[in-house]
Computed example of a mutant assay.
Amino acid sequence: MTPAHGFGRSPTVEEVAGWNIDVVPDGTGLPIGHGTAAEGATVFAARCAACHGAKGEGVPVSGRGAFPRLVGGIGTLVDDVPIKTVGSYWPYATGVFDYIRRAMPLTAPGSLTSNEAYSLTAFILARNGIISENAVMDEKSLPGVSMPNRNGFFRSAQSQSPARPRSDRN
């Protein structure tokens, strides 16, 4: 297929398949693989701890805020200053896997294997007390993990109504 603007090229089927890696809350899109918290601890120490702290507690960055805390904060969302972490805020464990696989580590996003992403997900979930240290996370078990804030999100009436033009736009 010739590109409409005379430059570039259409992606191959293989290229599109490589980009089509989204995972939805019910687990659709999860790849074959597996991992445990113990395996994740090794990967975390090597690839994640420099930014997120040895135990996922976050790391302050002078003048730029901090790299995010990943553990703790469960039950704080009703506080004046909630602690938003994977354990306290994220509604689906499959979303944790998806984010890790796509965006981490910061210096080499998308470089983790499926087993490493499952292992890191297991490590973070176990550190938050959501799964046991011995649990094996894979494409079958991960969608069944119930996150503490799973029911904490809801659609507002505004988001359910059809979009309408705004009068302040030309």
Rank of each mutant, 00 (worst) to 15 (best):
A54L: 10
T85H: 07
R47E: 02
P60L: 09
T42S: 02
A37S: 15
R64E: 12
G65P: 10
G53C: 09
T85G: 12
E39S: 04
R69H: 12
L77V: 13
A38I: 00
L77D: 13
G73V: 13
E39A: 08
S62D: 15
H52K: 07
F67K: 01
K55M: 11
H52W: 06
C51E: 11
A37M: 04
C48H: 10
D80L: 04
A38C: 02
I74L: 14
T76H: 03
F67T: 09
A45F: 02
P82D: 11
L70M: 12
P82K: 02
A46H: 06
F44W: 15
S62H: 07
P60H: 05
D79Y: 09
P60Q: 11
A41H: 01
G56D: 05
E57W: 09
C51L: 05
I83H: 00
G75C: 08
I83L: 05
H52V: 06
S62W: 10
A37D: 01
D80C: 01
P82Q: 12
T42P: 00
A37E: 08
V43R: 02
E39L: 03
G73F: 13
A46Q: 15
A46G: 08
T76L: 01
V81R: 13
T42I: 04
V81I: 15
T76R: 00
G58L: 11
P68K: 10
G75A: 00
R69Y: 07
V61W: 10
K84I: 07
G63P: 12
A54T: 15
T85K: 08
R47H: 07
E39V: 00
I83C: 00
A41F: 02
A50T: 12
V81T: 15
R69T: 14
L70R: 05
A54N: 11
L70S: 07
P68H: 05
A41K: 02
A49I: 07
P68N: 13
S62F: 11
L70V: 06
C51N: 11
G40D: 01
G63Q: 12
P60A: 11
R69M: 12
